[in-house]
Amino acid sequence: MTRWITRREAAEESRDQAQSFRELASRARTASGATALAAVSRFFDDDARRIDPASERRS
């Protein structure tokens, strides 16, 4: 059964994924690996902004 989530929840999940990739990037064994993982984290952050810009975290 499909679980419906709000735009805010979807954006938060995407931001959580971005954070996970940032953490992986910080532990990458190669510079190219760190660069690739950081790029994926930016993709998830951008996606979250498109999904629900009003829910962006304030740090």
Rank of each mutant, 00 (worst) to 15 (best):
E56W: 00
V40S: 02
T30A: 04
R42P: 06
E12P: 10
A48Y: 00
E23Y: 08
R49W: 07
M1W: 14
R42M: 06
L24R: 14
R57C: 00
R42E: 02
R22A: 05
D45W: 02
A36C: 05
A28Q: 10
A36P: 04
A31S: 12
E56H: 02
A38P: 02
E23M: 11
R7T: 03
F44T: 02
R7N: 12
R49G: 08
T30V: 11
S20G: 13
D16M: 11
S55W: 07
S41Q: 07
A36S: 07
A36Q: 06
A11Y: 04
F21V: 06
R22K: 14
E23K: 03
D45S: 05
T6R: 01
W4Y: 11
D46Q: 10
A11T: 02
D16P: 05
R29Q: 06
E12D: 13
S20I: 11
E56P: 01
E12I: 07
S14G: 09
M1A: 15
R15D: 09
M1T: 11
A11V: 01
T2K: 15
D46M: 11
E23Q: 15
R49V: 01
F44C: 15
S14A: 15
E23C: 06
M1R: 15
I51R: 09
E12C: 03
R49F: 01
S20R: 14
P53H: 03
D47N: 12
W4P: 13
V40N: 03
A11R: 05
S26N: 12
I5Y: 12
